[in-house]
């Protein structure tokens, strides 16, 4: 990062971490916990992640909620590819993290074999508090990361 931009890194990180537009890729029962976490009782919106976008083009946080089958794997990769940078991914629940209880012919053993994952939220299903904890950890990660990579990419 060049010296002139360094003071703005924290500001950009602050702005990005509190304006997460998330795209829920919901395939299974964890979706109920996602809804619970996203709705008024637990309220993801308190942390600046209230805007659910149902188009990956408008989202910068992909939340993969539930079991991903081998047949669904190309779809998930396409959805991830359609998102614009900067983008982050949360693996929500045991199935998305590792395949969960489904160690068989049909289920992908963790979505990190398909796309890069930033935060893993374990649980079958995770409690909404765990989801909020995962979101806060992602925000810490965004705050600390180098925000300058877009300009660096353009220069190279």
């Amino acid at each position: 990062m060049s010296g002139t931009l360094k003071p703005f890194n924290a500001v950009l990180g602050w702005a990005r971490k509190f304006s997460l537009f998330h795209y829920p890729f919901v395939t299974a029962c964890c979706g109920m916990e996602y809804m619970s976490a996203a709705c008024a009782h637990f309220d993801l919106d308190r942390f600046g992640a209230g805007w659910t976008r149902f188009s990956p083009r408008q989202a910068d946080l992909l939340i993969v909620v539930g079991t991903v089958n081998e047949k669904l794997a190309p779809v998930l990769r396409t959805v991830y590819g359609q998102m614009v940078d900067p983008k982050w991914v949360i693996a929500f629940g045991a199935c998305a993290v590792s395949g969960g209880i489904y160690d068989n012919y049909a289920v992908v053993q963790g979505i990190d074999t398909l796309i890069p994952v930033d935060v893993y939220i374990p649980g079958c299903p995770p409690r909404p508090e765990t989801v909020l904890d995962g979101l806060i950890r992602l925000q810490e990660k965004i705050q600390k990361q180098d925000q300058d990579w877009r300009w660096r990419k353009r220069r190279s």
Partner: peptide, 21 residues
């Protein structure tokens, strides 16, 4: 895969992506 002689943990190649990331 639901035949009893299908190996429980056999993995097969995934279908190719239609649109790459």
């Amino acid at each position: 895969p639901l035949r009893k002689d299908y190996p429980l943990r056999r993995r097969q190649p995934r279908p190719p992506d239609e649109v790459g990331p």
